[in-house]
Write a protein that binds this DNA or RNA. Structure first.
Lengths: 211, 211
DNA sequence: TGGAAAATATGACCGCCGTTCATGTTTTGT
DNA sequence: ACAAAACATGAACGGCGGTCATATTTTCCA
């Protein structure tokens, strides 16, 4: 009885949180992080400003929750990659394709992810929130080293001393290329160019990994 | 006579600007972009807040000017790289080493450069300021394709259809790796790990470029 | 050289926005 | 049914980027 009540309460709180997150997501992805105010979110979510601060500690935390949820959603799509029947090269290419599509699917998602990565210490985040964000990111990065390992095991790649370095290099290359095109590239041809640059440079890298 | 006066005036204005930039640079690099206020800069530079806005249009412009100056300073160090007597592989490695050292020399420099790159549209920048920042960045990136071209000409690298893609890939890889370590890496071992990851992954990439 | 006019410097003030908190409202437990 | 606890609300606060009326300096001509 008392237990049930508590459960229900928590459920309601969770719903409230999700309502706010959903409203915030929409606003952030339309207009970017900076130009959305907490009042905007409150209005859109049809709750009071104060209530938002009962669910979240800061505007930044709202965004971090969105990023973490997205990291997890991506992870769901790639977690079994290393077990798929295909060459490691193909898997890396496919991973890259999905990664780019995923983080470019919303106009501002990648921009803000990267900004948060660069500014974690400046944001009003608790240690816990930061760690959770890093952890959810790492889960995804790890898939890359699983694929590389698979390639080594099958003899497709030569043995490599430090798989982590290669994992970091590939992940860095993906993010770096996306960043560069977001910064300098023509918005119209952007997606196409990101994909072809990622694909071609990954091929060069893969060639370097082979025996 | 009248001409001389005007020159002197401009000179003084330039000095004033530099005084402000110097003070701002110090503060930004100590404490990051967000936590430095325009009042802080005014105090440190020993000018009034209003004067700052006579020289710069916004807080962001102050930082952009610093970034552009740094881009130019880096360019001075690498502009003749493609003419140096060395293999393209060695030149790429050396470029990467200098690039990493340069942008990691001040605690916050890279962080804020990347943030600006991601958020150019959100910043209170005029079109002109944005273009100037992109241009100064591109100057540096171009060096990479010059080195690659040299490698192709000398037969060290195989012929490549799209040099720009490779240039972007390498530059992306550098920035991506730095970003990743700034985000997730242990600050103590950071520099060492960035350098070794950059070096090793560049070697893999170079291997992929060779005949 | 004096003194008006133009140019420049100043910091009090404005408006915006993230965050808090006193107050009102609902839920809980008896 | 009612007190107490939990929760929701939006007015008010404080910090900061940016502005503008005022003060100060420079210019320039009589």
């Amino acid at each position: 009885m008392e237990e049930k009540r508590k459960k229900k309460k928590e459920q309601e709180k969770e719903n409230r949180k999700n309502t706010i997150l959903k409203a915030a997501r929409r606003l952030f992805f339309d207009r970017g992080f900076k130009s959305v105010t907490v009042d905007n979110i409150a209005e859109k979510a049809e709750v009071s400003k104060g209530s938002i601060y009962l669910c979240f500690e800061s505007k930044e935390e709202i965004y971090v929750q969105i990023l973490i949820a997205d990291n997890i959603a991506l992870y769901e799509r790639v977690k079994n990659f290393a077990n798929i029947e295909a060459s490691a090269s193909q898997l890396l290419q496919e991973f890259a394709r999905i990664y780019v599509n995923f983080f470019m699917s919303d106009k501002e998602l990648f921009r803000i992810l990267m900004t948060f990565m660069m500014q974690t210490t400046q944001m009003n985040l608790t240690e816990k929130q930061t760690i959770e964000l890093i952890k959810s990111t790492n889960e995804n990065i790890k898939i890359i080293s699983q694929i590389i390992q698979k390639g080594i095991d099958s003899g497709e790649f030569r043995p490599i001393d430090n798989i982590y370095q290669m994992q970091n290099a590939i992940w860095g290359m993906l993010n770096g290329i996306i960043s560069l095109f977001l910064f300098t590239g023509n918005p119209i041809k952007r997606m196409e160019r990101i994909h072809s640059t990622v694909q071609d440079s990954l091929n060069v890298f893969i060639k370097g990994l082979k025996v």
